[in-house]
Design a protein around this nucleic acid. Structure first.
Lengths: 209, 209
DNA sequence: TACATTCGGGAGCGACCACTACAGGAACGA
DNA sequence: TCGTTCCTGTAGTGGTCGCTCCCGAATGTA
């Protein structure tokens, strides 16, 4: 009663191994391409163990998305708010995000693959990713509003949408084209461009670019 | 002998119907999600007809990619080179590309889905898409070099990479988020930002942003 | 000891997968 | 009237899919 349900050591370890294997395969092949047999072979556990830990394939993929997101979040260390200019702060944040994406790309990789698919019965992992993504866009909008307080809401929303969408595109290019693309440099350039646009929008009063 | 091999009317028509059905399904579900049975059901022709027209599934998907690209190219009408300023010309080109992508998104949709996947034996359609894409980036670089002749090659390459990658991201956002995202407006904003960056790079001599 | 819970292991379920063998109808040229 | 080519329709093939059943060993609790 008083004990907080002592965990079986092998249990959580096995769950981690399953998630590791599934994350690798799913980030390579997408939803349909992730076979239970392949996950089982890579993690060394039989299919029945996978189905003991997870209700079905959809549940497994959803867990992969959620854990990949947490892994990515903890790996990403946003810079402290030293007394730089707002522009330098934004650029350093962009660089930090880029570095974390290079190191732990699984979350965004799998998420974008799921996001692009449109099957009749949508996987739960897709909706989870889209929710996380919209939260992230809200954060970007908050930062933009804090740094450029004279911007109206419509401009903020437009800038935030552009900022995260274009960042996704840069990430996709880095994933497909290979490592000769310097993602950190592209993200820094991206941050500069968005900041320029924000200043431009802030100085001219109407919303058109 | 003299006759150029008279085509059977039903043949090319069936091939078109198969490609139409496969394009719809592939743009929704990706490579693995595109089942021959599903294509057969949607186009009303038996699987054996599909395999008469196409060697295997990989051949079918490749044909879908190639035809979708041609369809998109013909649907995209680039504006004439009236006496506008270079900036206005670039913005109008971006808007035209955005409009064509809204109308015929299948090519880029399926292409990006294939591009994100990394299976051991890579589908031919993926390499075809990546080739087309690199050609497109070369075209963008040409235009940039023509409009801003004082830019060095490294800056041109960086700008072209950023321009097409970010455009892909905007397209993905439009596809996932739905039609409440104004892709044409985002592309116009994108064109302005890239043009600003190009002018900035052209005026300062060193390559750092 | 007695019993319940937690997992790993193997075997196998029906459904679906990409793909094929084969027969035959329709349109040609001879 | 043949034979040939083009294409469709039927009826499968072996293999893989997601998923389940059942057993047993290990680890609890009483």
């Amino acid at each position: 009663m008083s004990e907080p349900r002592k965990q079986r050591a092998n249990g959580i370890e096995s769950r981690r191994r399953i998630l590791d294997a599934a994350a690798e395969i799913a980030a390579e092949r997408g939803y349909e391409g992730t076979g239970i047999a392949a996950v089982s072979a890579r993690c060394g556990l039989p299919a029945s163990s996978i189905y003991w830990h997870f209700k079905d394939k959809d549940d497994l993929i959803t867990a992969v998305i959620e854990r990949s997101f947490e892994t990515w979040l903890t790996a990403m260390e946003l810079p402290g708010e030293q007394g730089d200019s707002p522009r330098e702060r934004v650029v350093r944040m962009a660089a930090a995000v880029a570095r974390s994406l290079v190191g732990t790309p699984d979350f965004l990789r799998l998420g974008l693959m799921l996001a692009l698919e449109r099957r009749p019965e949508e996987p739960r992992g897709r909706t989870v990713f889209l929710q996380i993504r919209s939260v992230a866009r809200g954060k970007v909008a908050e930062i933009a509003a804090a740094l450029l307080p004279e911007l109206d809401d419509a401009s903020i929303a437009l800038l935030a949408t552009y900022a995260v969408a274009a960042a996704d595109g840069l990430f996709v290019a880095h994933q497909t084209e290979g490592d000769e693309i310097d993602l950190v440099r592209l993200f820094e350039l991206h941050a500069h461009l968005v900041f320029d646009a924000a200043e431009h929008l802030a100085h001219s009063r109407n919303g058109s670019p």
